[in-house]
């Protein structure tokens, strides 16, 4: 911000490393995103493959899958969210500490996918919690998950630490918990959280 890129490189050649708090802070944050260890359906298999040696998510600092929402930064919604499971997913999200991020992985998690008209399938988890990155695919390949991960890293890297668009954990006003839907007699109540999801406009 204060130092221009050319000068930075020039100083680097002289053995002087110049940075800003914001850059350093975001660099640290984006390279230690620990996902929560949970899977919902077949996308979870692809997620597991992403963490193994061939795709090796550890390269991005995300190798530590935490089995507790308290220690996790990233929730990968890997698979179909049934209406029976949705309240638990939202509750787990609420239990995560800020900063927290969500990747909706695969057709089911983003829209209900092939099961969209099923009697027990939620038409996208973004109806209840804010989603940072959506990946289509059925299931998405590990490369797609890595791409989503890099997209999230880029998003984190670009966040200013003050003012508009700052991370939620630095904003006392920001909403961190979202209402858990109640399992009603015919459907989840409410059918979506107001403020999180609005009906997208279809452009034809």
């Amino acid at each position: 911000m204060a130092v221009d890129d050319g000068l930075k490189i020039e100083l680097g050649k002289q053995g002087v490393f110049v940075t800003t708090i914001e850059e350093l802070y975001n660099w640290g944050r984006k390279n230690s995103i620990w996902p929560m260890q949970f899977g919902l359906a077949c996308c979870a298999i692809e997620m597991i493959a992403t963490t193994m040696a061939r795709y090796d998510m550890a390269r991005f600092g995300a190798e530590v899958f935490r089995p507790s929402p308290r220690q996790a930064d990233l929730m990968i919604i890997s698979g179909t969210v049934t209406k029976k499971m949705a309240p638990q997913v939202v509750r787990l999200y609420n239990q995560m500490a800020e900063p927290k991020y969500v990747i909706a992985m695969g057709a089911c998690a983003i829209s209900g996918g092939p099961f969209k008209q099923g009697y027990n399938v939620l038409k996208g988890i973004d109806r209840y919690i804010p989603v940072d990155v959506h990946i289509p695919g059925c299931p998405p390949r590990p490369e797609a998950l890595l791409h989503a991960f890099m997209t999230l890293q880029k998003k984190i890297d670009e966040q200013p630490l003050t003012g508009e668009g700052r991370p939620r954990h630095l904003d006392a006003e920001a909403q961190s918990e979202f209402p858990v839907p109640v399992q009603g007699e015919h459907d989840l109540e409410p059918a979506s959280n107001k403020g999180v999801w609005t009906v997208p406009v279809v452009i034809r």
Binding site: K83, K84, Y119, N120, Q183, G184, E185, H186
Partner: peptide, 11 residues
């Protein structure tokens, strides 16, 4: 088994 206990219908 598949639906929640409060559910009333039979899908």
């Amino acid at each position: 088994l598949l639906m929640w206990d409060e559910f009333k219908d039979h899908p």
